[in-house]
Design a protein around this nucleic acid. Structure first.
Length: 578
DNA sequence: GCCGTTTTCGGCCCGACTGTTTTCAGTCG
């Protein structure tokens, strides 16, 4: 799948054109194309010309470039640009506060070609010889370089969301705020987060400056980047940027829509507005002609006045949601309350921390009527994987416990290891005795794409494997997904009736939203499971549900929204009674 | 470079904050 690769190339072309001072709309066209290519679930090399031209932002020229790249591995314009512009300039542009104009001036006037040059000359106060740069800018550039060195990578949402909620609680308690919400990619539940965006409005006639000061002086603030009356930015000690925006109650809805994004979703709404003789900004929706405010107190106003139904934040990525809204095709998204049970849970028997009784209580308290105990199989020695004998002991214990439980059922399962040769860790004779079997890869991540693909397909085709867990093996920030032929894998699953897991563990979130959406389109069943090793991990379900929502999934698309009876009927080759 | 329910040419989203400026350019989201 070359999608990511081509998206990266188009973004690089956009960066280089920016340094050259090229037509900003041409630059935007490259960026928009990149984003849309990243968002499609089909390998771009499998698309026909006609299909390619249907991707928003891809026209004749860019589709030619893509085809040429797939055929020859070259994009002439990129090579030309690279020969004109030293590569280091792109890295200079990565310094916060340094954009294309500054980067170009630094290169033209002082021959600065990389970050090392920039740091040295800034330290020696040589930058202030340039027009428009004085000591403050030098300081900011040095700070920016520091920040870049520390690395401001995107962090898993599971790490960022709790921090964001703490800040919101703090502000609620300490300041005269009437409304406060998360915005930005956190509100859209993206799997990784760069900044925390918070929107608030004040109780009437209160002083915004005092709130901004309170915000800038929170105990966990490490650095204040900017502070105004409507917008302030800080870096907290975890290294994450937090932006707070204050608006009037009258504009709260339009500001929330605006700051929730995504950027491209907003641009498309604004374009729609312009065509209707309207204007949208963070203060409301207005008539173009006499600037009369038509709405903005509630987020729904914006959509309603454009003639659209409300679009859930998770869908706002400009991946077809606006078109679907126009046609009345928006999905009724799944919600956390729809989940009836967790199908991937570990116990003390392997590398989990709790007894069955404790897990039953935890599941019940989350409103579930079942969960599957899926300890590791023997091949995973580090996780104290079960041998056949211990599995049989577990079966007896689960059976005994199930007899005592009323209105609740433990499903006897296993997370069987897919070995490096593609065979499973247990024979079919063992697997067929269980209520549910999930299979997954825990080794050989470096194998070739073909090898891993055939391992997965072999497991998918096994008659007793119901679910493939964490199908791409990624660990956010630690390990990339292994390379697979996603089309072949999905086709195999569709034929075999094997489901894929959306693993809700924050570092995994695997399938991601792109693959889960694709699976839905192919009518492949999905499950959302937490892979819990301790009880509190069960609360990760909300992250899994958020991936499902971002994937346009409805309740019907997810097997563990079913009652236990219906679930067992849907699983292939299982005993069909609860 | 894309795109069309005003257009196949001429548009292309909108505003805040900073640092440097006397009215604004650059950067960011």
């Amino acid at each position: 799948m070359k999608n990511q690769e081509i998206a990266r190339i188009f973004n690089e072309i956009a960066d280089l054109l920016e340094i050259k001072g090229d037509n900003p709309f041409r630059i935007r066209a490259y960026r928009r194309a990149a984003l849309n290519i990243e968002g499609i679930s089909t390998s771009i090399e499998n698309l026909t010309k006609e299909e390619m031209l249907k991707i928003p932002g891809i026209g004749q020229d860019l589709s030619d470039k893509i085809e040429n790249y797939i055929k020859t591995g070259h994009i002439p314009i990129l090579e030309d640009l690279k020969s004109e512009i030293p590569e280091g300039l792109l890295r200079i542009m990565a310094v916060p506060g340094v954009g294309p104009k500054t980067a170009k001036m630094l290169y033209d006037k002082l021959d600065i070609k990389d970050i090392e040059d920039l740091e040295r000359l800034a330290t020696e106060h040589k930058l202030s010889t340039l027009p428009g740069i004085k000591s403050k800018t030098e300081e900011n550039i040095l700070k920016g370089i520091e920040m870049l060195k520390r690395g401001r990578e995107r962090q898993p949402i599971g790490k960022v969301l709790p921090l964001a909620n703490e800040i919101i609680e703090y502000l609620k308690k300490k300041s005269p705020i009437s409304k406060i919400n998360l915005a930005g990619s956190l509100r859209r539940w993206k799997d990784t987060i760069k900044d925390i965006d918070i929107l608030a409005s004040l109780a009437s006639s209160r002083d915004p400056i005092s709130v901004m000061s309170l915000f800038a002086e929170m105990p966990n603030v490490k650095e204040v980047l900017s502070k105004g009356t409507t917008r302030s930015s800080v870096i907290i000690k975890e290294g994450i940027q937090v932006d707070l925006r204050l608006v009037d109650a009258d504009s709260y809805g339009s500001a929330l829509a605006y700051f929730t994004g995504s950027k491209n979703h907003n641009i498309k709404l604004r374009e729609m507005a312009v065509k209707k003789g309207l204007k949208i900004n963070e203060y409301g929706i207005f008539t173009e002609k006499d600037n009369k405010k038509l709405g903005g107190k509630n987020e729904e106003d914006i959509y309603r006045i454009l003639g659209l139904p409300y679009i859930e934040p998770e869908l706002r990525e400009d991946t077809g949601e606006i078109e679907a809204a126009m046609d009345g095709r928006l999905p009724q998204l799944i919600s956390l309350e729809d989940i009836q049970g967790d199908l991937h849970v570990h116990s003390q028997w392997s590398d989990g921390s709790h007894t069955f009784e404790e897990l039953v209580e935890a599941a019940k308290s989350r409103g579930y009527s079942y969960f599957a105990i899926t300890d590791h199989s023997k091949g995973l020695g580090v996780a104290r994987g079960l041998t056949e004998e211990r599995l049989m002991e577990q079966v007896n214990e689960v059976n005994a416990l199930n007899k005592r439980l009323k209105g609740f059922r433990i499903l006897q399962g296993i997370e069987v290891d897919i070995k490096s040769n593609g065979s499973l860790d247990f024979d079919d004779e063992i697997l067929k005795m269980l209520d549910i079997v999930i299979a997954s890869i825990h080794s050989g991540f470096k194998q070739s794409r073909d090898q891993i693909t055939s391992r997965l397909i072999a497991a998918i085709k096994n008659p007793y494997v119901n679910i493939i867990a964490h199908p791409t093996g990624r660990l956010i920030g630690e390990r990339d997904a292994y390379e697979i032929d996603i089309e072949d894998v999905m086709n195999a699953a569709r034929e075999a009736g094997t489901a894929f897991e959306i693993n809700a563990y924050p570092a995994r979130l695997d399938f991601n939203d792109i693959y889960a959406k694709k699976a839905k389109e192919l009518s492949i069943p999905l499950v959302i499971s937490t892979d819990a090793h301790i009880i509190t991990n069960m609360d990760y379900m909300k992250y899994g549900v958020s991936i499902a929502r971002r994937s346009w999934l409805q309740k019907d698309d997810v097997l563990n929204t079913l009652s236990i009876e219906k679930l067992l009927k849907r699983l292939k080759n299982r005993i069909k009674t609860a």
